[in-house]
Design a protein around this nucleic acid. Sequence first.
DNA 1: GTGTGAAAATGATTTAAATCATGAATTAAT
DNA 2: ATTAATTCATGATTTAAATCATTTTCACAC
Lengths: 226, 226
Amino acid sequence: MFSLKLFSKCCANEWLQVFKVNKETFYFEAGQRIFSEGEVVKGIYFVEKGNIKVLSKAHDKTDKIIRLASTGMILGHRGFNAKRYPVSAEALTQTIVTFIPLNVFLSILKVSPEMVIYLLNFMSDELQEAELRMKNLIILDPKVRIAIILLKLVEVFGYQKKEVKNLLSFTISRTDMANMGGTTYETVIRTLAIFKRDKVISLAGKEIVILNEKKLRQIATGKMKD
Amino acid sequence: MFSLKLFSKCCANEWLQVFKVNKETFYFEAGQRIFSEGEVVKGIYFVEKGNIKVLSKAHDKTDKIIRLASTGMILGHRGFNAKRYPVSAEALTQTIVTFIPLNVFLSILKVSPEMVIYLLNFMSDELQEAELRMKNLIILDPKVRIAIILLKLVEVFGYQKKEVKNLLSFTISRTDMANMGGTTYETVIRTLAIFKRDKVISLAGKEIVILNEKKLRQIATGKMKD
DNA sequence: GTGTGAAAATGATTTAAATCATGAATTAAT
DNA sequence: ATTAATTCATGATTTAAATCATTTTCACAC
């Protein structure tokens, strides 16, 4: 259990007890909201298992995918200085999360410099990640952006350990990919078709197999023009 | 002096002394680098005065503008968990910064929960800011994006207090605006011409006067189609 | 199995923005 | 002041991707 490991590493025994007493476990099915933008911040979530998309409402009232999350990640930490969550979190698959009330977490932060450092590092990583995506979105070529998204899927969700080699353990919808990449789902589909033609990936229904991760990485870093 | 105020608010007297003894002041001219991507992280910077652009190298080897900074902001905090700065900072105007070595700053963090909270809030804000920009970039209309950039210039650099009302105190180049907006400088220039035609702004050379901030805000939030 | 709805896939058309090309204006340098 | 260099400005052309319109495939229910 991710959160338990983290707290036992960072806290003295008495505070580990505080965590254990105050934590709650929640289960979500695919499509369910873990929390929604605008809700009052009650606490912080640790993803024990599952895949999640973090959404934020844009000016046009549609939700944009801000990041993907999976096992071992923190949710709701953007609420620190806000009264209300600035983003929503929605389960993409069956998900288990551990919840801890904000005041309890803040108390633990006060007595655990290790936890402070962990959190600062986590947020620093997230900041770099967000800025990296920003750069990627500025790059105008959708092919590059979609290659980056595929690599992101590998990074966050990983490969299925079953028969087929390099079959993504979870594939988000083409529409979600378009959302992440700032493009349309038709463009995503066409681009995936090109990648398939070039033997970079293969498609089995909506499922995606990464045939040539090296080549995909070259496309994603702009080292391959076609 | 921004950093002095911050530390005296957050620290007991003895630690304020540690800050005062260890801090250094640096001066930069427009175009000079404060630190560069890839350099070993030595410490953290507080902007006392001046305008700065924070850059990050993209795949195509060109620098992309990640954020703008001005008086009262922190630089170099992305280096917390990294050995080397993941971004560069370049002065846009004459700039004064206070530098404090990382180990000194971390020591102060350990004894000052106030400073921890301040930093967490600052980073939380930055994260939200980055995600907001991400959303904005996903929105495809360059006109909206350029309106957002103009408002950003108002927010970060403010208006000149001289004769002309609502004259931006500092205008970045069209090329820099294009960089921030993920577009070309021609598109920036054309869009500014449209804004001028619609009496939203006026142009005096490269300088920009915001004539109708309300209307600009409507364009930026997509509430105005033309 | 058959039916229904959703998601994926493709083709045709339009459109907006990038690119290319050139010229004007502003700034800096001698 | 004159030249050079940089930045700003516009017009013409091309191109890539959005939009629109259908068709196909897949998944789930009955």
